[in-house]
């Protein structure tokens, strides 16, 4: 059973929605002074998300805390900004994680069942450090975003389809589930909100702009710096330069990498020209497709390191490889050290 305090901690569960529904708040009444503190708290949730990427829990007044969640959701939707949607969902989910870690196991199971998790309590203590077993499909739905080796399925203890988890690990996986759930809630359209709420939305927009500078990611230089290629791309690049054939995934990794670091379609097509069976029209079409100039209009990014490893494209690793998980991240990082070298004039 969930207490009122539980509903304040986990405002996404159906019992919390029912609690809010029973309050029978009408949208056009939100301007009334009685809702002021609920609106304050809703706005604060989003501010916390922007500032700290973590929404706190104020459990002493659940009558405010619980309805502030759906109202915050409306405000985030009204902000119509994909960055804040992601950040807000993350910040709420992180808040949930902190609560879950301190819960007893039965409560975690109750929350997990909300998301149709096939999760069981391990009671006999035969498995040492583990508290739960979770079906591998639920595990994979939430666990593939993690980079640490301990989250790879191959490094888990799995028996008869069930992956063994500690309480902290189960909570962390639930965080992902909650984040996705909230992101889904934010993907709706709202036609009308009362002016006093729109005012608050405007304030949040300002805050977002002030903070904006910090969030913008570094952009890549316009010229291609070969010296900053990761080992896998270097190998593919050297192979193609010397006329060796590449696997399908190798060609895709190389082409999408080069396009993403700013090489032109023309230059990439030229790379393939040395082949005896070079077909200009076909090659150009494929490269343009990857560049997002043809077909689906999406620009493809190269596969992640672990995907390249699975398909045998990752040949050797160096110090930078150990710290990144994507060939483009390698390039970005290596650029910082390469830049210094490039500026110096080289003696021939």
């Amino acid at each position: 059973m969930f207490t009122k305090s539980d509903l304040a901690k986990y405002p996404f569960i159906p019992e919390a929605s029912k609690f809010v529904k029973d309050l029978d708040i009408k949208i056009d009444e939100l301007a009334n002074p009685e809702y002021r503190s609920v609106l304050n708290r809703a706005q604060e949730r989003i501010e916390e998300a922007i500032q700290d990427a973590l929404v706190s829990r104020k459990l002493h007044n659940y009558g405010i805390e619980i309805p502030s969640f759906p109202i915050a959701i409306m405000m985030v939707v009204a902000l119509a900004n994909s960055y804040i949607k992601k950040r807000y969902a993350l910040a709420e989910a992180k808040g949930v994680y902190h609560q879950l870690e301190a819960e007893d196991s039965e409560k975690i199971i109750e929350i997990a069942k909300n998301f149709d998790w096939n999760i069981k309590l391990i009671e006999d203590g035969s498995t040492g450090i583990y508290d739960f077993s979770l079906h591998f499909t639920n595990f994979l739905k939430n666990g593939t975003v993690f980079r640490d080796e301990k989250w790879k399925l191959v490094n888990r203890v799995m028996l008869q389809g069930d992956v063994f988890l500690t309480k902290s690990e189960a909570s962390r996986l639930l965080q992902e589930e909650v984040q996705r759930y909230i992101e889904g809630k934010l993907n709706v359209k709202i036609d009308f909100l009362p002016p006093n709420i729109m005012e608050r939305v405007e304030q949040l927009k300002q805050l977002l702009i002030e903070k904006g500078g910090k969030f913008r990611s570094e952009s890549l230089p316009k010229t291609v710096v070969n010296a900053a290629f990761p080992p896998c791309i270097r190998e593919l690049y050297d192979n193609i330069k010397s006329g060796h054939h590449l696997s399908h995934i190798g060609r895709f990794a190389l082409t999408s990498f080069l396009i993403n670091i700013g090489m032109t379609v023309e230059t990439v097509v030229d790379l393939f020209r040395s082949f005896s069976d070079f077909d200009e029209r076909m090659t150009r079409y494929q490269v343009e497709h990857i560049a997002g100039e043809k077909g689906g209009r999406t620009k493809y990014i190269p596969p992640r390191c672990d995907t390249l490893r699975t398909h045998g494209v990752c040949v050797s690793t160096d110090n930078i490889c150990r710290r990144i998980h994507h060939p483009l991240a390698y390039y970005r990082r290596k650029l910082r050290s390469v830049k210094k070298v490039v500026i110096k004039p080289q003696k021939e």
Partner: peptide, 28 residues
Amino acid sequence: EQVREMDQMARKEIVDYVVGIGLEATLH
């Protein structure tokens, strides 16, 4: 039924499990 909706990332993890890619003895 349970495997139908799995995305490519999840299937890749299954491949890695079966082939032993990324296996860490210290985690076993």
